[in-house]
Computed example of a mutant assay.
Amino acid sequence: MNKVVVLGATGTIGKVIVKDLVESNVDVIAADLELHKLEELKKWTNNRITIIPLNIKDEEKTKDVLRQGKVCVNATNYVFNIDVMKAAAAVGVSVLDLGGLFTRTKEQLKLDNEMKAADILSIVGMGSDPGTSNVFCRYGVEMLDSAEEIHIRYGSTTSGATFAFAIDTIIDEAVKNAQAVKDGNLVEIPPLADEEFTAFHEDIGVQKTYSIIHSELATLPTSFPSVKNITYKDTWDPDTIEKIKILDSLGLLQTEPVEIVGNSVVPRRQTVSLMQTVLSAKEKPQWGKDALLVEVKGIKDGNKASVRLELVTDCQDDWGVSATQYATAIPASIVAQMLLNGEVTEKGVKPAEQCIDPEKFLSYLKQKNVELYITYSETKKNSLVFA
């Protein structure tokens, strides 16, 4: 059956994945918890999808839904990544997700043999970053004779949105230690540390970027072991940082349950739930452009060289989605189509840089409403000739 099942289909990113798949003439089965949201999604896609209400915690129902497709795009919260992988393995359906925020990704990679035994592929992290960023890294590494450094940066001009995507993920990025490869060693650094100014495309400008926990650092050091320095940094609104610090200091982000009027309550869960409801109605962001920048430095023909790939994405007014939503959803849609078309053949658990052909991926990407800039620079040694 040549269909794509999208789990978490009505979420911030899931609905845009569904929309792009439909616009690409792919048959989609959209599954999520709330029927009324699924009905809204079906209307948004001109009734071109099949909708199925689904509680992802219902293992048997999840398997039944997955059996109806050939590929699964898991756009649920990353805490469900392993559950979805196991369900996909049980019914023989390849699956990709949007990332596991480093720690969960590490756990997913341990299921390689299980996925191979099921004769399926599970791609860990196939959104913007991780995802496009990983493919860009491979493109840069393959252009050089030897790569020595990989630096990933994300910038945005969107304003007025304190939490521009999944609140749970943003909180984790702000409070958990980040990782980086420095001098060949994977090290932990404090969250939002090692700040620097990054020069993005002129539409984005110079922005302050910070180290945060991210899934690329879970796979790139293994995929490219000779690269001695790998960093990931993102742009952060100072107001968002301050608000998260206040919530954390008040204990409203703790994950251990507390007793309230005889009931066991997890403060973090209650806080996030309340914020999702209140902010969705309150915040009116001024959408801008996003830029994903990957720079790979190394040696080419004996000279120092650099490959710089930058993807600039604008908000999609006709769809009513932000640049971040579009930039994250499009790669997942592209790779789902590549899997349907037999253009990805590996089995097991793989990050994008190990299983996605960069040239093929870029050929799809260039058909989307994005701007891609690739710059190669080389510093040649001066030759001195003495008479």
Rank of each mutant, 00 (worst) to 15 (best):
D203S: 11
S146L: 15
N47S: 10
T235K: 07
K233V: 02
I52G: 01
V18K: 04
G288P: 06
D119I: 03
R268G: 04
V22C: 06
P238A: 12
T235W: 00
A180R: 13
S146A: 12
Q286I: 13
Y78C: 05
Q254C: 07
S215A: 15
N229K: 10
K208M: 15
E59I: 13
T222G: 14
V73P: 04
S223L: 11
F386T: 00
G127L: 01
G127P: 04
R268E: 05
I171Y: 00
A117W: 06
E195H: 12
D97Y: 06
N177K: 15
L98N: 00
V73W: 04
L339I: 04
D248S: 13
V349R: 06
L54C: 03
K86P: 11
S377N: 11
H151P: 02
F136E: 01
G298I: 00
M338D: 00
I120M: 10
I246P: 06
P351Q: 08
S128N: 09
G184M: 15
Q68E: 14
T375A: 11
P331F: 12
L96I: 00
S226Y: 14
S306K: 08
L21W: 07
E259W: 14
V65A: 07
K3I: 04
L144Q: 01
G320C: 11
S306H: 05
Y373V: 11
T10F: 01
V135M: 10
T328S: 04
N77P: 00
D172E: 12
P238H: 12
S133D: 07
T50N: 10
T324A: 10
I244D: 01
P191A: 00
K243T: 10
R48G: 06
Q286D: 12
L293S: 06
E353Q: 15
N46K: 12
P267F: 03
V261R: 14
I171A: 02
F165H: 06
